[in-house]
C-alpha cells in the first residue's frame, strides 16, 4: 500500500507542484483548496500524512489543524505545515494547534519526501 497524503493549499500552483512531487514519489495524493475543503475531503479519505498551508481563505491552516485534531478518525494523523512563513511564532502557533512538523516553502522535493517519511507511521 503506497502512503497516502492529503495536501491543502489555496494556491493552484502549489497544489500542482505538490501533486507532481508526491505522485512521483509514489504516494497517493488528495488535494484540497482550503481548510474547510480539507476537512470535507477528510470525511472520505484517510491519509497517512496531511500537508497544509497556513495562510488560506475560508479556513486557514490553524483552523484546519484544530479541526483535524478534533476529529476521531484523524486526531493523530501527522500534519506537516507547509508555509512560506518561517517566523518562529507561526511555527509555535501551528504546533499549539496540533501540527506535527513543518516544511518551509519553496520546498525541495527530496526534503519534502524525507519529511513525510519522517512522520508517517
Amino acid at each position: 500500500m503506497p502512503l497516502s497524503v492529503l495536501a491543502v493549499d489555496d494556491s493552484r500552483t502549489m497544489r500542482e507542484m505538490l501533486r507532481l512531487a508526491l505522485t512521483d514519489a509514489g504516494f497517493d495524493v488528495s488535494l484540497a483548496d482550503d481548510g474547510e475543503h480539507g476537512l470535507e475531503v477528510l470525511q472520505g479519505v484517510t491519509p497517512n500524512v496531511i500537508i497544509t498551508d497556513i495562510n488560506m481563505p475560508v479556513m486557514d491552516g490553524f483552523g484546519f489543524i484544530e479541526g483535524v485534531r478534533r476529529s476521531t478518525e484523524h486526531r493523530v494523523t501527522p500534519i506537516l505545515v507547509l508555509t512560506t512563513e518561517s517566523a518562529t511564532d507561526l511555527k509555535m502557533r501551528a504546533k499549539n494547534a496540533g501540527a506535527t512538523g513543518w516544511i518551509v516553502k519553496p520546498f525541495d522535493k527530496d526534503k519534502l519526501i524525507d519529511a513525510i517519511k519522517r512522520v508517517a507511521a
Partner: peptide, 13 residues
C-alpha cells in the same frame, strides 16, 4: 451531505 461533498470535491479543482 458530507459524503456527497467529499466525492464532489475530492479531485480538488
Amino acid at each position: 451531505a458530507a459524503a456527497k461533498a467529499s466525492t464532489e470535491k475530492d479531485t480538488s479543482d
